[in-house]
Design a protein around this nucleic acid. Sequence first.
DNA 1: CCAGACGTTGTT
DNA 2: GTCTGG
DNA 3: CCAGACGTTGTT
DNA 4: GTCTGG
Length: 231
Amino acid sequence: MCGRYGLFTPQEDLAELLRARIRDRAWEGSYNLAPTQKGLVCREAEPGERELVGLEWGLIPFWAKDPGETRSKYSLINARAESVAEKPAFRAAFRRRRCLVPADGFYEWHAVEGGPKQPYWIRLKSGEPMTFAGLWERWEGEVEGQPRVLESYTIIMGEPNELLGRIHNRMPVVLGSGDRDLWLDPGVGDPEALRGLLRPYPAEEMEAHPVSRGVNNPRNDGPELLEEVAE
DNA sequence: CCAGACGTTGTT
DNA sequence: GTCTGG
DNA sequence: CCAGACGTTGTT
DNA sequence: GTCTGG
């Protein structure tokens, strides 16, 4: 599962890397982004026009009756690559609302026998931000009698590569620069073509190191969370 | 037909 | 143990 | 993902 | 909204 990640590269740099327009200039980066918080996604707002926008992490389907109930009762922060095209909660978004979720890296917890889990920070060797395959959704309705629009997203999870396999049994689907255009193109509806993109990212382009358990608490945030520690 | 779910992970 | 909140 | 709560009553 | 279960 990918339940925590970091995104602190300036939006200007992300916008250039992804050829996208900045929509939420006030959005602030984080070294410890947790579910229910706002993360950035890159989506095709209009044909040929990409935007970076801050949405809530944890997908609320457009048909949800009560977003609060959906948020707490179900865990829609991740979607399985193997079934995302068919699951009722994701299939509409898979067809029409795919997005990229930029991240400077992500955390995975390695279960150690007879001890507390050891968190790892995983990033690209190149030092560039990576992009997860994601889906976004738009919910419109009333909350406490007030009209509300809620936009949210989920991160697609798949098989681990050789590096992540030593830490955990799953990892987020990372799309390389060559796959991003196809994933974002709303005109592409062929599930087979899209499913082909949901494969493990090459292990030789990634690196991982153990970090402090300070990251466990979602209230902690700062570059010190990324520092390597002895296992 | 209507009612009720709609999800993932890890652990037991 | 299980659910909610971040 | 992990952390933290998990409850009711009466009074301010 | 759409599918599954009764």
